[in-house]
Design a protein around this nucleic acid. Structure first.
Length: 824
DNA sequence: ATCTCCCGCCATATG
DNA sequence: CATATGGCGGGAGAT
């Protein structure tokens, strides 16, 4: 009896191999000589074996074995314990590590193939698992919840899950990334870092205000779960569960990795952000601790999935635990810039709910985009007609889409529990061409009726589309919102509690044409009301403002004297091709409620409203507008979209000048200055501030300067330099000593700050996709570099002219001074 | 001491 | 009501 256990105990490797307890006894521990190098090899082998055998059989066998031996084993163990001496006993006793969630997760994963063949679906029965793995059920929930958040499994019913493996991972990650970007996580991270920084030399300062302002906007009060079409949650009950906390947390955690530039996230930061989201609550210590605990749980599972690995970041404060993303890179959701941007900007009216060509194609072929699209002639036709329609619509900005407004009003207002789920429209095409076609068909067929984006609550809208998609029938059926930029669509689900129907698991996709960003047409009623609402919702609803306002503006242009935005709008309309409409949002506090459209080819990344916002939006009836807004103003490329020089001159620049500040004021982006990171100043325009860049820079700086005052921007924002391509020309004029270098893991941090650290340099990177020629030279305003507190700092400007863009959103980076990452 | 994070109580949700 | 889920935080092993 007492055999093998003793020596096995210490080595992880060994431990892993044999399940402590019974395995050694019942099963002849793997006879195979496993390469010592890979600790998980045993598992891998097991996995292979397992996958080879039909899951059912395998599990059955295992179960049988376990059941047969389990009791015995336990007894045996007891005996063992009692008889062994202290040392030996200890060794025989599974150490804490052996019980780690990570290890457990490995075992769990070993039972299923990474990429199960579609034909053989494997189901997971929690009872079996707990039995076989010999763990408390509670632990399995932790694992499953995380897997669920990645759509690697989905729940069928009580006790029952389906195993999807990693098939959905790419889409999931892409969707998460997108959502993360929209959530302004980058800014939040920066904000937190900044705060941290400030605390160093200004320990006893109050931080909550800043935090509040920063996070307040992002408060998506409700948890939203990012869904994938075809992988919806099973029962409404499940869906509706408000407790998706771990799942949601997991997704958010992943989002953080996906949006951060060095894909490293410290637990501390993650915890703060996640807490901040849930509630502006003061970071009380216990809550923080709890969050950290959860993050460890999640991290363990993610680590088992090899998506992240533990590292340490060393800052002056010391070593802090962090995790580094080691999963697959998520395809940038910025494939076809221009087209997309354009199409996005000009969204079809609601009535024309048919997805735009880009959207459609993207939805279908996220990664390949248009090319594929072109193959289908029918689709092309459709697209063309759509485009025409769109054009018409555009010409008639006021063309109202009654649907949304009336519908909303008539509809009962749902509690803000509605959850919105972004979803990817497309499945993997690999080997599923058929599916793709189906999708397309659906796309084409999709009801003309516009489904208001945000109207999860709109049953009517939902129901219609449903007809098209037989597979799905449920109140929860998602409305998929194509997201032009990434090809990721969003699906909005009704909160189960509200919508009683259950979502059926539909292998296919449920495509519902949505009006893309038609901020324009969608809603037109009283802007006043909207604004008001927005204001009320203030903190949590900022995202709404934009859409609402913009709509309002469009709807009733004649009402007021022309605002700059309106003018812009006009211009944009006048302009043939580049009518990208930019909206700026004003924060609740901002007095200015007028909308501003930026007809420029530059898309200024603004943070958008969060899901919660969207959802709420819908509730409040503003909904219609909210969701798509993003597309309208976000550029596929992070920062700015390159445009023609001519265009720049005429329209763009002016636009910038006109409302730069306003733009920046968007509540969401408050702390984050628009970015200019790693951007390119065209070589020609380097030092003298040529425009686009200069103007951008300009307003950015202004913004910065403003922040302290009007907005609650931290006193000393620091800019983090983003790695730039080496060959890009960096121009730096620094009066101080500025050295621009690409940090691998360490960044140069420059700060605009007052007081505090004095010798810091300022470093700005512009992330403009270089307009080749700059026009309208603009001098950088003096105050541009003005430092609120400490005047003597000199900023250095760095611009690159390579078109590369890394950041998805322009932002002001907060530096991590001397960041060192050490792997374990 | 700090980092990790297991354990399992107990509130909720589900059936 | 019984059971399935899963939030939560004490407190102990690992470093």
């Amino acid at each position: 009896l007492k055999t093998p256990l003793k020596q096995a105990a210490t080595s992880q490797l060994v431990l892993t191999e044999r399940q402590p307890g019974c395995q050694p006894l019942t099963t002849p521990p793997k006879p195979k000589e496993t390469p010592p190098a890979d600790p998980w090899t045993p598992t891998s082998n097991l996995k292979m074996l397992i996958s080879a055998a039909s899951p059912e059989i395998r599990s059955r066998e295992q179960r049988r074995q376990l059941s047969d031996s389990s009791s015995e084993v336990l007894q045996t163990k007891h005996c063992l314990q009692e008889h062994l001496l202290g040392d030996e006993y200890e060794k025989s006793q599974p150490s804490r590590k052996e019980k780690s969630l990570g290890l457990l997760c490995h075992k769990f994963l070993a039972r299923y193939p990474d990429y199960p063949s579609p034909s053989q679906k494997s189901y997971i029965c929690l009872d079996e698992v707990t039995e076989e793995l010999r763990v408390e059920r509670r632990r399995i929930y932790d694992i499953v919840n995380v897997l669920e958040s990645l759509h690697m499994v989905s729940r069928l019913a009580r006790n029952r899950y389906v195993w999807h493996g990693r098939h959905n991972l790419p889409q999931t990650l892409q969707a998460l990334k997108k959502v993360g970007e929209e959530n302004k996580y980058i800014q939040q991270i920066q904000m937190i870092k900044k705060r941290e920084y400030e605390h160093e030399f200004d320990p006893g300062s109050e931080r909550n205000e800043e935090m509040a302002s920063c996070f307040g906007s992002s408060e998506q009060s409700e948890m939203s779960f990012v869904e994938l079409p075809g992988v919806e949650f099973r029962a409404a009950s499940v869906n509706g569960r408000k407790y998706k906390s771990l799942r949601v947390m997991s997704q958010k955690f992943v989002m953080l990795f996906l949006v951060s530039t060095p894909q490293i996230v410290s637990l501390e930061v993650a915890a703060k952000i996640l807490i901040g989201e849930d509630q502006l609550e003061d970071l009380d210590k216990s809550k923080f601790k709890t969050k950290i605990r959860r993050l460890y749980d999640i991290a363990n599972v993610l680590s088992s999935l090899k998506l992240i690995k533990k590292v340490h970041v060393t800052e002056e404060r010391g070593r802090k635990p962090a995790f580094k993303w080691t999963g697959p890179e998520v395809l940038p959701n910025t494939q076809d810039t221009k087209l997309e941007a354009t199409s996005t900007a000009c969204s079809p009216p609601i009535s024309e709910s048919i997805p735009s060509k880009e959207q459609c194609s993207k939805a279908l072929f996220p990664s390949k985009g248009k090319q594929n699209f072109t193959r289908h002639s029918s689709l092309i036709k459709l697209v063309k007609s759509i485009e025409n329609d769109r054009r018409k619509i555009q010409s008639a900005p006021t063309s109202p889409v009654k649907i949304s407004a009336s519908t909303y009003q008539s509809l009962p207002v749902f509690p803000n529990t509605i959850a919105q789920f972004p979803a990817i429209t497309k499945h993997q095409l690999e080997g599923q061409s058929k599916t793709a076609e189906e999708v397309q068909m659906k796309c084409a067929l999709s009801s003309p009726e516009a489904v208001p984006k945000l109207e999860p609550s709109q049953q009517p809208a939902l129901s219609q589309p449903l007809g098209v998609c037989p597979a799905s029938h449920s109140s929860v059926s998602p409305v998929i919102l194509p997201h032009p930029q990434s090809g990721v669509s969003y699906a909005i689900y009704l909160h189960p509690s509200q919508a009683h129907t259950v979502t059926t698991y539909s292998p296919g996709f449920m495509l519902q044409p949505l009006p893309c960003a038609n901020v324009t047409g969608i809603k037109g009623n009283n802007s006043k009301v909207l604004n008001k609402v927005t204001t009320e919702e203030g903190d949590t609803q900022r995202g709404l403002d934009e859409p609402t306002k913009s709509l309002a503006a469009e709807e009733r242009p004649e009402t007021k004297s022309e605002t700059s935005s309106q003018r812009c709008l006009k211009r944009s309309q006048a302009l043939p091709e580049n009518n990208l409409i930019k909206r700026r949002k004003s924060d609740e506090e901002s007095l200015d409620t007028s909308l501003t459209f930026f007809p420029s080819g530059y898309l200024i990344p603004l943070t958008h409203c969060t899901h919660g916002n969207k959802a709420e939006c819908s509730n409040k009836e503003k909904a219609g507008v909210c969701s798509l807004q993003h597309s309208a103003y976000s550029s596929p490329i992070t920062g700015v979209i390159p445009m023609q020089a001519s265009e720049l001159k005429t329209v763009n620049i002016p636009a910038f000048h006109i409302t730069p500040l306003n733009i920046m004021l968007s509540p969401n982006s408050i702390a984050a200055a628009p970015v200019l990171s790693n951007s390119c100043l065209s070589s020609s325009s380097t030092s003298s501030a040529p425009n686009p860049s200069s103007s951008a820079l300009n307003f950015m700086l202004q913004h910065i300067g403003l922040i302290p005052a009007g907005v609650q921007v931290p006193a000393n924002p620091v800019l983090q330099h983003v790695p730039v391509s080496s060959q890009s020309e960096n121009t730096s004029h620094s009066s101080g000593s500025t050295n621009v270098q690409e940090g691998k893991v360490s960044y140069n941090t420059l700060q605009l700050h007052r007081g505090g650290l004095s010798g810091n340099n300022f470093l700005f990177s512009l992330q403009l996709s270089a307009p080749k020629e700059s026009q309208e030279p603009q001098a950088v305003p003096e105050n541009f570099f003005r430092t609120p507190g400490g005047p003597n700092t000199e900023p250095s400007l760095t611009a690159n002219s390579d078109g590369t863009q890394r950041t998805s959103q322009g932002t002001l980076y907060i530096p991590q001074r001397k960041l060192e990452v050490s792997e374990d």
